[in-house]
Design a protein around this nucleic acid. Structure first.
Lengths: 105, 105
DNA sequence: TCAACATATAAACGTTTATACATATGATTA
DNA sequence: TAATCATATGTATAAACGTTTATATGTTGA
């Protein structure tokens, strides 16, 4: 029963990771990480088609990583919890470390 | 040019996240997180088929998350950098927090 | 060298996913 | 209400993925 301390909820972990496993979604996440942005702002900033952005935003929302707020004709998305940015920064750093430490090329 | 400080390498991030986005791979990762284990040990512990375990180990190795070591007929896998465990713990915690804080059900 | 065991690879299959295109919904303003 | 703008949804398609089954590679000991 000491797995409790080491093993985590693989189900929800995999679910979150799956949402983070797409470059466009990551870009959108960073895009709305400092301030709320409308879909059209995101579309323009990232050069995505509007339906594609909408689709990925839906996925991000499904994973609760972004929250939505309507204002007039615009729908604003913003990051739910900035801690995800810290985690992603750590993961990015780890990735770099893994690359630099690897023995086999 | 201040994106440098906030935006990360979405490519390698997505690559790492993709590797973490599978429950079986996460289970394998936790399984080899405390001590190196042979494929057959992993297979037995997690109840996976041998080819399936082998396939996922290959993916984990491709992402440099595990390292391999042969000893006689056995091939031992172990976690490369334990920091991934910290990151996953944080992600798991965030997942729980997101769920408890959500407003829409 | 042969047999037995441990692990890896290959091919095939069904499922999921990202994307594009077309269209619908919803809100605003004239 | 009509027209326009912002966003969402539906459908289709191609690629990627996880899994299974079968087979191959590699190692050890008789």
């Amino acid at each position: 029963m000491n797995n409790r301390t080491t093993n985590l909820n693989t189900h929800s972990l995999a679910f979150l990771a799956k949402c983070l496993a797409d470059e466009n979604r990551l870009r959108i996440l960073f895009c709305v990480s400092k301030e709320k942005k409308s879909v059209s702002m995101i579309v323009e900033e990232l050069g995505l088609s509007q339906p594609l952005a909408s689709h990925h935003l839906k996925e991000l929302k499904r994973a609760l990583l972004v929250k939505v707020e309507r204002s007039g004709p615009f729908v604003y998305y913003e990051i739910t919890d900035p801690r995800i940015l810290v985690i992603l920064a750590e993961l990015d750093e780890l990735g770099t470390a893994l690359l630099s430490k690897r023995t086999t090329f």
